[in-house]
Design a binder for these strands. Structure first.
Lengths: 159, 159
DNA sequence: CATGAAAGGAGCGCGTC
DNA sequence: GACGCGCTCCTTTCATG
């Protein structure tokens, strides 16, 4: 779409693989991992960034260690009559909330799934009532506690 | 468990905030952001890592640029009789699949939600049939296309 | 494209407050 | 805890194959 995704070669894939696990890997580590010189690796990584294959580098935070021990997925159904503008507005407002980790906008059924991390169940209730079910465009919500959560790769937000 | 979560102070929160957006921020940048000396900031970040508040640093990859243009959330319901062992096994097997970005294990209804990124709809179908609905412990699946995806923070996998 | 060399920046430990 | 200094290591550019 934006750029040609003219094939990444095997070296690029290897570099991505290392950087996905450790965004702070040094050039030297990367160079050793793929068997090329540091300067070469440096140029390749820069190119991956410019092409937008690498969208950024993020620290991964354990929410539990920050007093956010309780996570949930909240399914949100919007009112049938909700217009595009209000859907967009809703989505952006929710996304900006600090308790929100991710937002999925699902096709077909004007349905959102919101991944939330809070301190305890009373906070969860407050959050859902205040920011989700209380919203005029929201028809209903359904909250499911996250008992276990595993992530493989950091997938970038859509543009 | 590991360490007490003896309160992070405002400086720690600021540091996390910067590192969440850019895991490769230099000590100098961090020092300026919080108004302390580089060596101080360095020690603090180390401590956050050791305490497990920072679980790691990851490159964020745009799946679209890697030929994974189609994302979906697949709701998976397991057979009522599924035992703990088979649930765990299922979850670990699914997690290891390269198409899988994240796995949520939801409480209450022995229900998983799997975030998948693949190339196109035929691949999606193949993936679901082959790895999810084809599994003996799976009772049913429901696949929803992800039209939009926004992420705020990188939440760590549970231990 | 890949490379090594060279210079400027950054990481990081330590002694001091 | 916070600090600054100094040593080491890393990043980044550039001329060259």
């Amino acid at each position: 779409m934006l750029q040609r995704d003219d094939a990444l070669d095997a070296t690029d894939l290897d570099l991505l693989d290392v950087l996905r696990r450790d965004a702070r890997a040094t050039n030297r580590q990367l160079a050793r991992a793929v068997g090329l010189a540091e300067s070469t690796v440096h140029a390749r990584v820069r190119r991956l960034e410019q092409r937008g294959v690498i969208a950024g580098y993020e620290a991964v935070v354990r929410q539990e260690r920050m007093g956010h021990g309780l996570q949930a997925l909240v399914h949100v159904t919007l009112r049938p009559g909700a217009r595009q503008a209000s859907i967009t507005e809703f989505s952006e407002r929710v996304r900006a909330l600090p308790e929100v980790s991710q937002v999925f906008f699902l096709g077909g059924v004007d349905d959102f799934i919101v991944h939330v991390a809070v301190g305890d169940s009373s906070e969860m209730r407050r959050f859902v009532v205040e920011h989700l079910s209380g919203d005029a465009t929201v028809a209903s919500t359904r909250t499911s506690i996250v008992f276990d959560y595993q992530r493989n790769v950091s997938t970038a937000s859509f543009d």
